Simulated assay, not measured.
Amino acid sequence: MNNVDKNTFLNINLKSISKNYKIIENKVGKNCIVAATVKANAYGLGVKKIVPSLTRIGCKFFFVATTNEAIQLRKINKKIKIFILNGLITKELNLIHKYNLIPVINSLSQLKKIEHYQKQKKITLNISLHFDTGMSRLGFDKNETKELINNKSRLIQKSKILLVMSHLSCADNSNSKLNKIQLNQFNSIRSFFPKSLHSLANSAGILLGKKYHLDMVRPGISLYGGHCQMNEKKIYNDVISLKAKLIQIREIYKGDTIGYGATYKAKKRMKVGTLGFGYADGFNRLFSNNYKILLNKKRIDIIGRVSMDLTTVDLTNLNSKEDLMNKEFEIIGSQFSINYIASLINTVPYEILTNLGKRYQRRYISI
């Protein structure tokens, strides 16, 4: 990867991803397909490594957001089934045909376009139908759903409906009444498509129980070690750790300030280290004066404001004889997981993971 920093390291444990996949398989049972959601470059961790790792343990179905993402996957593997969640763009029909991709059809207009294309080309394509049961984001709305069900034989003449799906809006809250409402709505809709696969559950939906698993589940964040439900216990293995080496050490004195805004003022003589990552690399400014990193199990305070490319830490209490410049400090890891640090700044692990920048040197662990 171009423009990587030789002093910052994002370790990605492929074995942990495989273990998480197997945990999900055991939860849903042998009659339910586990399809991996690898949109946004596998949540920023790299499809070129992660997709082959998952196919080796039996994953054959993958979900992405866009046609470009789908084509990238097809170039990695010729045999897997690839679904495009964001739907159909007319000018991409030739690419969908060429690369044997499965568009998730989200509206009647999209359905009519792909039907017309197939009639012109005298071909049959696999598609998925997405019905909106409560997200109000993508999928056939209530009126379109009714029209499609009442006119199914006229509207669907060429397409092979491989999958019928919907998406849960509140699965992160297992007590939400909307979960059961959506399940009931989807069960009613899917009864009109008995020959297709049926899917409702994302990562959080998997934890709602067997009724939500149906024929296929679509985990995303759970594969990568992130929590997806409120107050979720540790079920899955951590996948990433983030480490960095110092790029400078300096001494400051009582009254000296650190960083933009002078938000930290030294009360005594101190040793300060500078690390080469910042908010441009996905390390949020909210961690300014509000986070600890690790070295040899010792907790070290971030002091001063996190800037675009740099973060400063207090090294005062570390052994002065250690060669600190060659040590790797742990920013994210087993002590400070993506779930823990997301809670510190009131966000979700999805955001922490997908924001991790391209400048980190990625190291893949497969043993």
Rank of each mutant, 00 (worst) to 15 (best):
G357L: 01
V217C: 08
R154N: 15
K78Q: 15
F83Q: 02
L197D: 02
I352H: 00
L214T: 00
L45P: 04
T67S: 11
V104G: 06
N41I: 02
A204N: 06
L101T: 09
F287G: 03
T66W: 10
L14M: 07
C32F: 03
G220Y: 04
N289C: 10
S176A: 07
M230S: 15
L294G: 03
A70Y: 10
F336N: 10
I206H: 07
P219V: 03
P52A: 03
S53Y: 00
N126P: 11
H213S: 01
G225W: 04
Q110S: 14
I50K: 04
I149A: 06
F62Q: 00
T37S: 15
Q118S: 06
T347P: 10
F287L: 04
G139Y: 07
N326S: 12
V164Q: 01
K160P: 10
I345T: 02
E69S: 06
L10N: 00
I96W: 01
G255F: 04
F63A: 13
A342S: 15
H97F: 14
L88N: 03
K243Q: 07
V239R: 04
D256N: 11
R154T: 15
D172Q: 15
A266L: 08
F62R: 07
G278L: 05
A40F: 11
L353E: 02
Q157T: 14
G357D: 00
N296A: 12
K195P: 11
N94Y: 12
E232Y: 02
K195H: 13
Q72G: 05
T311Q: 01
P194Q: 07
F193R: 08
A36T: 05
G220L: 04
N26E: 13
K180T: 12
I206E: 07
Y279H: 13
V313K: 00
L315G: 02
N77M: 05
L125V: 09
I302K: 08
G282H: 00
L356V: 09
I300D: 08
L318Y: 01
I82N: 01
D323A: 14
V4T: 15
L183Q: 10
I50T: 06
Q185M: 11
Y360E: 01
S176P: 09
T66G: 03
I352K: 00
S107N: 05
T316Y: 02
L73V: 09
D281S: 06
N289R: 11
N317P: 04
K119N: 12
D141Q: 07
G226E: 02
F329N: 01
E144W: 10
L93C: 07
N126R: 13
I293L: 08
S343I: 08
G333M: 00
M308P: 11
G29Y: 03
G205H: 04
Y253K: 15
M308N: 15
L108V: 01
S334T: 14
I89A: 06
M325S: 10
Q72M: 15
I96V: 10
N290R: 11
L138S: 11
I149H: 09
Q118T: 03
S16A: 12
I365G: 03
Y291F: 14
I345A: 10
I80Y: 02
C59V: 13
K254H: 10
K211D: 15
N284V: 00
R218Q: 06
H130W: 02
